[in-house]
Design a protein around this nucleic acid. Structure first.
Length: 407
RNA sequence: UUUUAUUGUCCAU
């Protein structure tokens, strides 16, 4: 069972939904799907994909089999419930938990805190903190990291530094995530050089480098308790490489990439995507294609990677190559999504083939992919380009019916 | 030895 669970976990981390489902039915056929751990994994996949109704059925199945949910099960479900519009208020969620007699743990509070912070509901976030304190639940580094990230995202750099200071005073360990939040915050507020210094410094001093930030926090970190100093990871490098690519500083980006690999950190498909997207943005398509080939050798291909490259190619009207990528995706069983189809439609639009664009729309509906505002926008543009204003108008009217008011 | 919370790309790809 453990072997099966390991593989199941692997597929779900790689977001290979097809394989996850196949493996689960295989396990069920062989009577290997009967443990709480397996159910928790399954639920977490369903919740990640927003399939709450299915998750509910799975819970019922568990209960029928007499498998008692644990706190992890509840936490997974709570993160799912956060996605529901009806739970837009923290007290709703808390009340629900009380009704169920569930004792929240620090993870539970972190899930809620993160949810409200990410929605900019700072008042609600504060109420979660209050509730946490009232229930004698001690915040940990993760809790602080969530708050720290939220402060940076709100542009409150000063308050973020004060929070760091507090963390140190109260003896919280600053970990790699803490450093990455600061690195990202610095990058996004135009202090890239400082961020680069921190990544370098972490190799020697761990989180102690954060003491060099300046302002409130100056020199307050010291490492005599910090026996296991933290090191930069893939995300540290991805963050700074993204920033460099975004500024067109590709030589430096490459230099950091090489340095990272020298430190025995392997790139993932997101890091490759960063390069592809950056090169496309600056019209360096042959470099983008080159990176894509590298990605193919080293990582699982994702729909997103294809889409980034197709987007760059379609903007330049390189239709043949885009279509070649499309068939490649189909050969490899990589699902096409709405953005893939939009990239294809963009090609036809560039080449003034509005009629074929309509066929593509049919194809995507057949494939069960719903168009978005961008799809309609591209179609209307296609029709206007060939001066078929009647069809353009018709398309626009359809889009008004199909899309929400916001779109 | 396996499962839940925080950090990187996109967000009209």
């Amino acid at each position: 069972s453990i072997t099966y669970n390991l593989v199941l976990n692997g597929f779900s981390k790689l977001e290979r939904l097809e394989e996850v489902n196949k493996l689960i039915s295989f396990m069920k056929q062989n009577g290997k799907f009967c443990e709480l751990v397996s159910y928790n994994m399954w639920l977490s996949v369903l919740v990640r994909y927003g399939k709450l109704f299915e998750a509910r059925l799975v819970v019922e199945e568990m209960l029928e089999k007499g498998i008692e949910p644990d706190i992890q099960t509840y936490n997974i479900l709570i993160s799912g419930l956060c996605q529901e519009v009806m739970f837009s208020d923290s007290s709703d969620v808390m009340a629900l938990m009380r009704d169920k007699g569930v004792i929240p743990d620090v993870c539970t509070y972190c899930i809620l805190l993160h949810w409200f912070c990410s929605k900019g509901k700072i008042g609600e976030a504060n109420r979660v903190m209050d509730e946490m304190v009232r229930n004698d639940c001690t915040p940990n580094t993760v809790t602080c990291n969530i708050l720290l990230n939220s402060l940076w995202k709100q542009g409150k750099a000063m308050e973020a530094e004060k929070l760091l200071q507090k963390m140190v005073q109260r003896g919280y360990e600053l970990d790699t995530v803490t450093c990455n939040i600061v690195i990202n915050g610095l990058c996004k507020s135009g202090k890239l050089e400082k961020a680069l210094d921190i990544v370098n410094g972490m190799w020697d001093f761990g989180s102690v480098v954060l003491g060099d930030l300046g302002h409130a926090f100056l020199g307050l970190v010291d490492d005599h308790k910090n026996k296991t100093k933290c090191s930069p990871d893939l995300l540290s490098y991805s963050t700074i490489i993204y920033e460099l690519c975004n500024m067109g500083r590709f030589h430096e980006a490459k230099k950091w990439f090489v340095e990272m690999k020298g430190r025995k950190i392997s790139p993932d498909s997101i890091l490759y995507d960063i390069f592809i997207h950056g090169f496309c943005k600056y019209g360096k398509l042959s470099s983008a294609i080159h990176v894509f080939q590298d990605l193919k050798k080293n990582c699982y291909l994702t729909t997103k990677s294809y889409n980034f490259l197709m987007h760059g190619l379609s903007k330049k009207g390189r239709t043949d190559e885009v279509y070649k990528l499309k068939s490649e995706m189909q050969e490899h069983g990589i699902p096409l999504n709405v953005f893939t189809y939009n990239n294809l439609i963009r090609c036809l639009c560039e080449n003034e083939k509005a009629q074929e664009a309509t066929l593509l729309m049919d194809e995507m509906l057949q494939a069960g992919v719903a168009p978005n505002a961008s799809t309609f926008c591209l179609l209307v543009k296609s029709f206007c380009k060939v001066r078929d204003f009647a069809s353009a108008k018709e398309t626009l009217e359809i889009s008004l019916k199909v899309l929400g008011p916001k779109d």
